[in-house]
């Protein structure tokens, strides 16, 4: 993402797996940080530290970002953003998506664990198209 600063916009949809321990909490944590204007920072921290996403870890990341801890904890414990997460999951199912991550790069679908180089190739193609 750093390479493409200013050229690429990322939109995030949550697709946490039902049977993984911390998937939902991590999604809640990202959105709770978003309420305090730090979504992107938390998104990056969670991905960098995955799979260390248990409650204590997530709270540590929130502290690192200087969040209001009372609001943050209440948010993740109260599943405040469950409706958004469920909406995203429904969208994923409706679109027949079964893998994470799945990317849509200007609408072009790229599934699962493709290499970073492959993603770059598509992004570069799209940037080139945009310049025409």
């Amino acid at each position: 993402m750093e390479t493409y600063k200013g050229k690429v916009r990322l939109v995030i949809k949550n697709y946490p797996y039902k049977y993984r321990d911390y998937s939902h909490m991590a999604a809640e944590a990202s959105l709770a940080a978003g309420d305090q204007g730090k979504y992107c920072e938390m998104h990056d921290l969670l991905l960098k530290n995955s799979p260390r996403l248990d409650r204590d870890s997530v709270i540590r990341y929130a502290k690192e970002l200087g969040l209001d801890m009372k609001a943050f904890t209440a948010s993740i414990e109260g599943f405040k953003h469950a409706a958004i997460i469920e909406r995203d999951k429904k969208l994923a199912v409706d679109m027949d998506l079964y893998n994470t991550p799945t990317f849509f790069i200007n609408g072009r679908k790229v599934i699962g664990n493709r290499s970073y180089e492959y993603l770059r190739k598509i992004v570069d193609e799209e940037l080139k198209n945009a310049k025409r």
Partner: peptide
């Protein structure tokens, strides 16, 4: 209604469906 990172004027939009874990 979904979180966005990066400028709205960007030429490329990546929509990611992710599980952080």
């Amino acid at each position: 209604g979904s979180p966005v990172c990066g400028p709205p004027t960007a030429a490329v939009t990546i929509i990611e469906f992710i599980d952080f874990q």
